[in-house]
Computed example of a mutant assay.
Amino acid sequence: MRLKSHIFVSALLRRAFALGGYAAVLRKGAEDAGTIFIRQRTRMGTETLFAPAPQNFFDDGADTGRKFEIRLMDRDGDEVDGALASEIRFDPDCWIVEIELDDRADLFDVVAEDGANRS
Rank of each mutant, 00 (worst) to 15 (best):
M1N: 13
R2H: 08
R2E: 09
K4Q: 11
S5I: 00
H6V: 14
H6W: 13
I7M: 11
I7F: 08
F8C: 01
F8T: 03
S10L: 09
S10D: 15
A11S: 09
L12T: 01
L13S: 05
L13T: 07
L13K: 15
R14M: 07
R14C: 05
F17N: 11
A18P: 06
A18T: 10
L19D: 09
G20V: 05
G21I: 00
Y22A: 10
A23Q: 04
V25D: 03
L26K: 11
R27Y: 09
R27E: 13
K28W: 01
K28L: 04
E31C: 01
T35M: 06
T35W: 05
T35Y: 02
I36D: 07
F37P: 01
Q40Y: 04
R41W: 10
T42L: 11
T42M: 12
T42N: 14
G45C: 01
G45F: 00
T46Y: 10
L49A: 04
F50K: 04
A51E: 12
A53P: 05
N56A: 13
N56I: 12
F58S: 12
D60V: 01
G61E: 07
A62P: 03
A62C: 11
D63G: 05
T64K: 10
G65R: 15
R66C: 02
R66M: 07
R66S: 07
K67Y: 11
K67G: 11
K67E: 15
E69F: 06
E69A: 13
R71N: 13
R71F: 14
R71M: 14
L72P: 06
D74G: 04
D74K: 08
D76S: 08
G77M: 03
D78V: 01
V80E: 06
D81A: 08
G82Y: 08
L84T: 08
L84Y: 05
A85Q: 14
A85W: 09
A85K: 14
S86K: 11
F90P: 01
F90Y: 14
D91N: 15
D91G: 05
D91W: 02
P92G: 04
C94V: 00
W95C: 02
E98Y: 00
L101I: 03
D102F: 02
D102R: 02
D103H: 07
R104W: 06
R104S: 09
R104K: 10
A105W: 10
A105N: 11
D106C: 00
D106W: 03
L107H: 06
F108Q: 02
F108K: 07
V110G: 02
A112Q: 13
A112E: 11
D114Q: 10
G115E: 13
A116M: 15
N117H: 13
N117K: 12
N117M: 12
S119C: 08
